[in-house]
Nucleic acid binder design. Structure first.
Lengths: 225, 225
DNA sequence: CTATTTTGGTATAAATTTGGTATTGTTAGT
DNA sequence: ACTAACAATACCAAATTTATACCAAAATAG
């Protein structure tokens, strides 16, 4: 069973991407048709999401012209990360996430691990749907970061997720997410969670490193195509 | 008497997950069918539990649309860094900087290492001026990050630096930066740089970990004062 | 300036998803 | 045996999304 993606969810993604400056970083958003393609959703849904953001006074919609970010310098505080390449992203995650695993062991509650478990179970049935799988993957890493209770780390991982989603929406989703890859990821996710449950910090960190190494391989393989 | 699972128990689980933000943390809950799968329970049970939560005004059920979490939400949208504590900061750096050292070995040019060297030499003469020393320390870690050539990592380290400076401006500068501490830091910086020059990734990473461990100790010691 | 392209605005039908409801069978506790 | 709660299944009606198509205004190219 696949979770339906609604206009509210799209609105949330757009809002986050706008606030993080991941989206074009300019005042003007891509056209509704482009956004529909990037977020893999119908134009009507994008339109509904934009209307939500318009009501929130986050954007201004000008017919015939485009949709503009209206917030006064919405994210002057955090410069932005436009030019980061996928490989740079993997390296950054390589630095962050193994230690996230170690901290998770120290701080995660049983309840939170169960929630992650449910995500993994669901992802086992999503190897036919790369889009839904990718969302689940993001959720997995986000929830894992949240178990650390470290607001700074949670925020940083959130930023890297924004960049990652932006890349994946742009292209190369089917390139890097074929079925064998997704099955490998599922297995690695499982191993990470198990190591955390067993309270084995270095095992969990190593499992995460293996996972990211697989992601890097998948990237270079896609680049060679 | 054997306890049955019961819709009330499911309702309690759902309520806790909603309040803890474990469940999606957004407005809309997963559909009843998905919840039934996740909680390993029949849909009718989920339905009854949701009705209980609806009576409690915790959620709103909209036929054909979905079940929505009612009430507050605007807080969660801005998980900013402002609230990060010094200990959270150290943990984040603990995640980042050891790997920065490893990447530095792969990417640093001789010229850049020489520049860092000059910073360290300068800092040797600054143990009488905590403010200048702190500036040098920030510069050391920033330059180190820049040698990785990874824009995302550079940006992240820059963000953590601004958080760090924010804390240091606030107070606990003299608390955590007495003369013996500064001399220890100088020695550790030197050891990190040497390990990078010798192209010993794990040695460099370990030296950085020692350095951060010292910083953490310095913090807890200051907090105990 | 004019012609073309691009953009948001609108409308429509089909497909999908969702909550609402009913039915039947199973299981646990009395 | 009886009863109540849950599981499993099927079907319904409403809401939403998708996929198109076409329009008018703005932007752009010539």
């Amino acid at each position: 069973m696949i979770q339906k993606i609604g206009s509210h969810e799209i609105a949330n993604m757009l809002r986050q991407d706008i606030l993080n400056g991941v989206l074009n970083s300019k005042q003007r958003l891509p056209s509704e048709r482009i956004l529909a393609e990037q977020y893999k959703v119908a134009r009507g849904t994008i339109r509904e999401a934009l209307n939500i953001l318009a009501i929130e006074k986050l954007v201004e919609i000008r017919p015939g012209s485009g949709t503009y970010i209206i917030g006064e310098n919405p994210e002057q505080r955090f410069p932005m990360i436009d030019g980061a390449s996928p490989l740079e992203l993997v390296d950054a995650r390589f630095a962050l996430e193994p230690h996230v695993c170690r901290l998770a062991i120290l701080n995660a509650r049983q309840q939170e691990l169960d929630a992650i478990e449910r995500i993994l179970v669901e992802m086992n049935n999503l190897t036919e749907d790369p889009i839904a799988f990718s969302r689940g993957d993001t959720q997995f890493h986000t929830l894992l970061a949240e178990t650390t209770k470290n607001r700074l780390l949670i925020w940083i991982v959130g930023q890297t997720n924004s960049v990652r989603n932006q890349h994946q929406r742009h292209r190369m989703r089917n390139l890097t997410l074929d079925k064998p890859t997704m099955e490998l990821y599922n297995e690695q996710h499982r191993r990470i969670l198990n190591a955390i449950r067993d309270r084995e910090p270095e095992l969990a960190a190593q499992a995460m490193k293996d996972h990211l190494e697989a992601a890097r391989l998948s990237l270079t393989r896609a680049a060679a195509t």
